[in-house]
Design a binder for these strands. Structure first.
Lengths: 110, 110
DNA sequence: TTACTTCATTGCAATATTACGATGAATGAC
DNA sequence: GTCATTCATCGTAATATTGCAATGAAGTAA
């Protein structure tokens, strides 16, 4: 049906999935990498940096903003974006907990 | 168009996106968590454990298997799945590199 | 053999995502 | 005021994803 049955999963599982989905597109990965590389707010040049049309970039930025991973502020005609450090750290911990659960895989299986 | 323009991004960016997408659905998160919890191969009871229909689970398992994150072996009428430790570690390093790039965010922005 | 179990595959419907042209809103320059 | 710039939003088309019923394939049990 194209709709995920989120109600049968735990809040934690849904939260992991929502954050992971944010990185599930290379454009959003590229946007975040660029914001980290510049290490301050980026004003306007994201469309040139990434190779997609302006409405498409705007849409990806909106998704990242809705998740709280980035924040933007208006500077005249431009809008400046940067990482939201608190929320990035929060997200990182949630995903790291999931990724680091590989305690002890028995090799007497499969 | 529903199709991602992967050709304009680096291999690394596409790789991050592909792995992240694997966790972008709570059912796949739940499957992986269960495999880790059981800590050995799981034979058959995934449909009862997760609350989705059998073809749906089979489809999610196929995606995880195609990415190499899990592996399966036939045991009679049953099929047993477990985490692929090598590929899980590989994936974890790729995603961790991305998540851990928060070196120094200047707070004189935004 | 038949019946049963387990899982994969097919086919389909509903929803989501991606991308962009066109347009609008807000600001700055003049 | 006009004009240009920048970014958001709307509308739409194409593709992807999710979910399940029906069916198929392969094994076990009798």
């Amino acid at each position: 049906m194209g709709i995920s049955k989120t109600e049968i999963f735990t809040d934690q599982q849904n939260e992991i999935a929502v954050f992971a989905k944010a990185f599930g597109h290379p454009a959003r990965v590229a946007i975040l990498q660029h914001l980290f590389k510049i290490d301050t707010c980026v004003c306007g040049d994201l469309v040139n940096e990434i190779g997609l049309a302006q409405p498409t970039i705007s849409q990806h930025l909106k998704e990242l903003k809705n998740l709280g991973l980035i924040q933007g502020s208006v500077e005249g005609t431009r809008v400046c974006y940067c990482i939201n450090p608190e929320n990035w750290t929060k997200m990182k911990q949630i995903l790291s907990n999931f990724l680091n659960q590989d305690v002890s895989i028995k090799n007497d299986c499969c």
